[in-house]
Amino acid sequence: MTPPAIDTTALTRRFDDFTAVDHLNLRVDAGQFLGFLGPNGAGKSTTIKMLTGLLAPTSGSIRILGEDFEARPAQIKRQIGVVPEGMALFGRLTASEYLRFVGRMYGLDRATTLRRTQELLDFMQLAGEEKKLIADFSHGMQKKLALAAAVIHGPKVLFLDEPFEGVDAVAAGTLKAMLQRMIARGATIFLTSHVLEIVERLCSHVAIIHRGQLVAQGSLDELRAGAGRAGQSGSTTSAAQPGGEKKSLEQIFLEIVGADREGNPAATSVEQELSWLS
């Protein structure tokens, strides 16, 4: 039986008296394209940092492709690719130099590294920019390069932290094409994004984290049906709106995390406070 691509047990991260991630039990099967959502400060980036070994958990365990991260970090890092929040590029290299460096760090031989570098530069439409330093790249070009670097070694699990943030439609199209190809070849993708439309269009599954806790996980249809939500055993809400239209991911998301304790949309109180706008 194939082990889950990502499997966390009671994963917790505290910063002094603040718990950023609280006993997270997350399971992502191999081949899934998971959108990991949550409001600002919910713990998305902290989770992704722990899953990629950039941040040590306070407690709990992480298994990637069936292997314990703490026991074999280097072995696991070889099989994952990461586009971190800040992209972590070396601005004083050219795109080609950067990809060659990353390829060698992942143990690819020289010939393979050179071949894949050229292919990736072509695919990402960066081939004409070979003499330019990365620091002079536009934001979209840097995102494309970061994704190219994340896949150069053919990872089995890909972690993407806000890959579409600040990216224009053309660059976003290239990124999506790359991600769809990765999924088609059986890779698992773990993506965080605030752009719910993109998640809805690309992802097969969605997990929602709120105040450090996993509050929902499942396929979009499962979430529409109200299943997969924490504390709910079955369907409690209608999958469709009164007009018969399917609920959008945004509506589901707001239902789960957007309401205050009394169930009122959070936006109401903001409008009341900003009376000068009315």
């Binding site: 292919e119 990736l120 072509d122 053919g154 070849r185 890779a187």
Partner: peptide, 22 residues
């Protein structure tokens, strides 16, 4: 691109990366 984007995963044996390479 072909080897990156092929449809099937070829199970990769993961030989150790030589220290000198890194």
């Amino acid at each position: 691109m072909a080897e990156l984007m092929g449809r099937e995963y070829v199970p990769e044996a993961l030989p150790a990366i030589p220290a000198s390479t890194q």
